[in-house]
Design a protein around this nucleic acid. Structure first.
Lengths: 144, 144
DNA sequence: CTTTTATCGGACAAATTTGTCCACTTTAAT
DNA sequence: ATTAAAGTGGACAAATTTGTCCGATAAAAG
């Protein structure tokens, strides 16, 4: 569904969000360990999220990543997906046609549109913050 | 959503099905041209579909690909997806965890499950044959 | 039975994605 | 000021996916 980079990005964001809600910053190492991802690769992904102003980063000793109080209320899943995978999730044709829309659809356009619209709706209405709730109660997990 | 190979596979199957309904066989070249895909790569994909008995192939002069009369009524989208991409579409975790289920879910498990279940339902109930209808009426297209 | 036309399948090549390494910059603490 | 601890970013490497080539195989037609 998403690229691996995007999956890491979402997991990382959820972890950072959870800690940020507790008033904590987290280091790259902590993130990579928490979500079980390669450290250097995760670094690249966090840089992207940082440039898109989804997470904030601080250099130097006691530096690390965080999501600010205003941001944490606003950041939706779709922003992370867009920052890393771009808009292909939304506009891409289910059968891979370079262009495909209601005016000149692929044979499965209608069927896929229903699914895609729901995916879009879900990504646009799900906050990162909401996904941290189960985490802190140990009802959900970021690695396994 | 699917691999490119899988997209080619679905497009090819729909094209072959349409022609088969008209009592025709089609050559590799015709398939590749109809769905605008690389010929040799398409060949690999058709071989997979052939081994999975989704399409039939005939060698020699006047050979080509077809979907038999019984098969054409039965073949569902999900069989093609499974033949090429395996079951990762169904069982894969939305956040990329190696394992993720109701007992130990990722933070977005519930949200993704809804989408995934619908995708699964759609793939399992959509016949290739049904997708050829719009094609023959030029309401839908396999390349663009 | 030979030739021609088609798919089959293995080896190879290119492109993309994923992952690693390391020198650089920033910043806090001493 | 110096040092140490962090993220930054560019170059490189590995793995996977996508795509190509070509000889082998099968079958129909002359």
């Amino acid at each position: 569904m998403f690229s691996k980079a995007c999956e890491y990005g979402i997991r990382a964001s959820i972890f950072i969000a959870e800690r940020s809600l507790m008033g904590m910053k987290v280091s790259l190492k902590e993130v990579a360990n928490a979500i079980d991802s390669p450290e250097a690769y995760t670094s690249k992904i966090l840089q992207k999220l940082s440039r898109h102003e989804i997470v904030s980063s601080e250099k130097g000793p006691n530096g690390g990543y965080l999501i600010g109080p205003q941001q944490i209320e606003k950041v939706m899943l779709n922003e992370i997906v867009f920052a890393i995978d771009g808009d292909k999730v939304y506009q891409g044709c289910g059968l891979g046609l370079p262009k495909c829309d209601g005016a000149k659809p692929c044979p499965a356009h209608h069927q896929f549109k229903i699914i895609r619209d729901e995916l879009k709706e879900m990504l646009e209405t799900t906050t990162i913050k909401s996904l941290t709730l189960g985490l802190s109660e140990s009802l959900t997990f970021l690695k396994r």
